[in-house]
Amino acid sequence: MNEQQSRIFDLFTHSLIHSFTHSIIRMEELLVKYVRNECSPEEEQWVIGWLQNPDNESRLRGLMRKQWSNPSVSGVESPDWQQMWMGIARQTKDLPMESEPPLYRTVWRQIARIAIWIGCIIAFGLGIRFLREAQLPADVIYQSGADQSMRVELTDHSSVILNKNSTLTVSSDWSGPNRSIWLDGEAIVDVAEQPIGFRLLIHTADHVVTEAQKARIFVARKDKKVRVVVEHGLANFVIHYSGMLGEMKKYALQRGGMAEYDEKSTQLIRRQVNPLTYTSWAQPE
């Protein structure tokens, strides 16, 4: 590059720097005039348009930082850039976004919201359940005599024949799919055909249940021992084991199938038997 070209380049560079510096000064002057409400309508629209451009926000924030870090020279009035920015943002409805909270706070807030919703749902369900149970009549208890059996008809068309010295408790709540009865002694339970998804639950201990949908079953509970024999149909012998895992085991029983469970030793024995050996004391249906 010769001396003349170098001189032309220096003049051109100086002109660009002067023009850029002049535009910055001009922009600062317009912003000051805008804050003082001294702009003409055309200048006001130009300033608002300049501020609405996302690319210019960083420049304005730079001026704000400059204002904060370098106080004005005494006697020279300078605009409050922060106040000006908030005022412009309110007018243009383009408020600066607040800084996002840390991730762990957001996660814990979501967990807290979910926990509150779950708690409300549980409380609402329990409230409905307690209210419903309060409106239900008491469970019905049947007790057979020492020298005779007793026949009990259930509302689902099932029937129970109690042997001597036996007790049957029938739940008053028969609106749901799990219809429950409790037996202490001996009985033959004729389970009527249940609707799809419905079951009759025969409780013979705190954690032993026999469930069936259509069957004739001999059920006995004496001296902490439970015995179930299926005369016809199908049934499930269910044991709920206590513990943290709440383990449950279910054993399917068909015609002639017997399950014997000792509550003390928790031993279960299953084998095939002749059902009439256990049902001969009752008259056939």
Rank of each mutant, 00 (worst) to 15 (best):
S158T: 07
T210V: 14
L162A: 00
I181L: 11
A192K: 08
D184E: 13
I188F: 12
D147Q: 12
H203F: 15
R179S: 10
E133W: 09
N163Q: 08
R129S: 13
T155Q: 13
V208E: 13
E133P: 05
H207F: 14
V107H: 04
W108E: 06
R129N: 14
I181E: 05
A212C: 13
I121T: 13
P102W: 04
M150D: 02
A187H: 04
Q213M: 12
Y142R: 02
G127L: 13
W117P: 04
T155G: 07
I121W: 12
Q148K: 13
S158L: 07
R113Q: 12
Q143G: 03
H157M: 10
P195K: 10
I161D: 11
R151W: 00
Q135N: 13
A138G: 03
F124N: 10
L126I: 13
A215L: 04
S171C: 08
T155R: 14
S171F: 08
I161M: 11
R105K: 12
Q213V: 14
I217C: 03
F130N: 05
F198M: 14
I122M: 13
R129Y: 15
I128H: 11
A215H: 06
E133N: 12
I114K: 06
Q194H: 11
Y142D: 01
D156M: 02
V107Q: 01
P102V: 05
E100Y: 06
L201N: 15
L103M: 06
L154F: 05
Q194Y: 04
R179D: 08
A187R: 02
L200Y: 12
P101G: 00
R109D: 03
T167Y: 02
I196E: 15
E100S: 06
I161W: 15
L136T: 09
H157Y: 09
E186L: 02
L162H: 00
L136R: 08
G119V: 02
V170K: 03
T106F: 04
T167S: 08
S171N: 15
W174L: 10
N163C: 02
